[in-house]
């Protein structure tokens, strides 16, 4: 991480970057920002330099953008699973703390109880 350069910013996309010397980044031909992979370069070009791209690059961008969908779907499923885990973890902790560990109506009771407590 010794080689650091400040990319100039023709389109307000200038970011300070530093590339490890042993890596060869994909450099954006329009703003000089080094990208971590060819796929990210295609995405970056489409997002920040759309007006300057030819049809091939635009098509490549659209493919790459749609291609992100698969990864995102898996990711969202994981997040959903995590949310469910968090939700049930809280449900169980609350029912344990409210000293009625086996009642599934605890959540509802808790809400009603809190509401009355608030009043």
């Amino acid at each position: 991480m010794t080689d650091s350069n400040l990319t100039d910013s023709p389109d307000e996309t200038g970011y300070e970057t530093s590339v490890p010397p042993e890596e060869s980044p994909a450099e954006c031909p329009y703003c000089g920002r080094p990208l971590e992979s060819e796929r990210l370069l295609v995405l970056h070009e489409g997002l920040d330099h759309w007006e300057r791209l030819d049809d091939d690059r635009r098509e490549a961008f659209q493919e790459a953008y749609v291609g992100e969908g698969d990864d995102l779907r898996t990711f969202r499923l994981k997040m959903l699973a995590l949310l469910v885990v968090v939700y049930f973890a809280f449900l169980f902790v609350y029912s344990y703390v409210m000293e009625d560990p086996f009642s599934s109506t605890n959540a509802a009771l808790l809400l009603v109880g809190c509401w009355r407590g608030v009043r």
Binding site: L72, R76, L83, V86, F90, V93, Y94, G117
Partner: peptide, 27 residues
Amino acid sequence: MSVPTWLFLLTGGGVVGASFLLASFVT
């Protein structure tokens, strides 16, 4: 307070964490 403090704090932290998970759905 009828909910112990640690649970109250944990719930607050949980809400922020959950909101991040939900925000990450907006892609």
